[in-house]
Design a protein around this nucleic acid. Structure first.
Length: 291
DNA sequence: CACTTGACCTGTCCGC
DNA sequence: TGCGGACAGGTCAAGT
């Protein structure tokens, strides 16, 4: 599902594809996916030009020349797919995703002046896109409380440990999934980084040493960077801005690897439930410290 | 306040 | 083959 690496992959792809394009039409029909009314769309989107494509946490921010922006959260099954002139050209067989758009999961369809299109698809309708004045983004309730970006220099050992330790009585997996502790980690990279740091996901934060948390910070940075390099993880629905799948899942050590040998100790990887989520771990090398 | 659970949705998979 | 139920998991609201 879209976590930081997937959203970053979409962002960098879109940046190459839609900057300077002019929006001509916008079609939408599911208010929870796009709550704005036709009048504000006509006024602040139509005939506007795309000036930037940014990301904060798992939120994409497409800046428009009207000083309005589109904030987009893909949640679990959201996709943001660009289709250019090559839709039926070489390399794009008619059974590929982009040749079939729009489909029944399409919630918003944006057409640019050069006939290319941007589709916001979302099977489960948990994701959203909204048009907001650019200057108000920093005052958005989520933006106000979301934690530091793990791939920025600000994410030091001191910053990470002090923020995690505010969740001393909860398990470490719940703590790193908490977007107010740090931005961008979801279920896949939580399991992967905890395996890398040899920490059991159910360990209470107060039972972890600073040294263990420093190692966990390193592993979070490592798996997020590796995944960006691999174009993200496609577990089910995720595709990038060109409709293509990511390959990190092929490099995963424990996520979706239940029943297979741990790459480190060959013990069988198990799937359990921690913090209300499906959780993959090696019980041999991720020992839970109880005291 | 700290922390956990349920709701939001739809498609897929599993057992009967 | 059909059908009910569990499951997928990001975030917020509601509950303990």
């Amino acid at each position: 599902m879209p976590e930081l690496p997937e959203v970053e992959t979409v962002r960098s792809g879109l940046e190459k594809l839609i900057i300077d394009k002019t929006i001509m039409t916008v079609e939408f029909d599911w208010p929870k996916s796009f709550p704005n009314d036709k009048q504000s769309v006509d006024t602040f989107m139509i005939k506007s030009r795309v000036v930037s494509v940014k990301r904060r946490a798992k939120v994409l921010i497409i800046g428009l020349s009207t000083d309005y922006s589109l904030m987009i959260h893909l949640r679990m099954t959201g996709q943001l797919v660009y289709v250019g002139q090559e839709r039926f050209g070489a390399g794009h067989p008619n059974d590929s995703l982009i040749s079939k758009l729009p489909d029944k999961s399409t919630r918003v369809q944006i057409k640019f002046s050069d006939k290319s299109q941007l589709y916001f698809n979302d099977q489960r309708k948990f994701g959203w896109m909204k048009l907001v004045p650019t200057e108000l983004i920093v005052k958005d309730p989520f933006m106000m409380k979301v934690g530091p970006e793990p791939l920025e220099p600000e994410f030091s050992n001191d910053v990470f440990t002090s923020r995690v330790r505010k969740r001393s009585n909860t398990c470490i997996k719940a703590a790193i999934l908490d977007q107010t502790v740090l931005a961008g980690v979801g279920n896949i990279y939580a399991d992967e980084s905890l395996w890398g740091a040899k920490i059991h996901p159910a360990t209470l934060v107060k039972n972890l040493s600073d040294k263990q948390l420093h190692k966990l910070r390193e592993e979070i940075i490592f798996v997020l960077n590796l995944s960006i390099e691999k174009g993200g993880s496609t577990d089910r629905n995720y595709v990038n801005a060109e409709g293509k799948r990511g390959s990190y899942i092929d490099f995963a050590r424990v996520f979706r690897k239940e029943g297979m040998p741990c790459p480190r100790c060959k013990n069988i990887v198990v799937k359990t439930r921690v913090a209300g989520r499906g959780t993959h771990l090696c019980e041999m090398c991720q020992i839970q410290k109880l005291v």
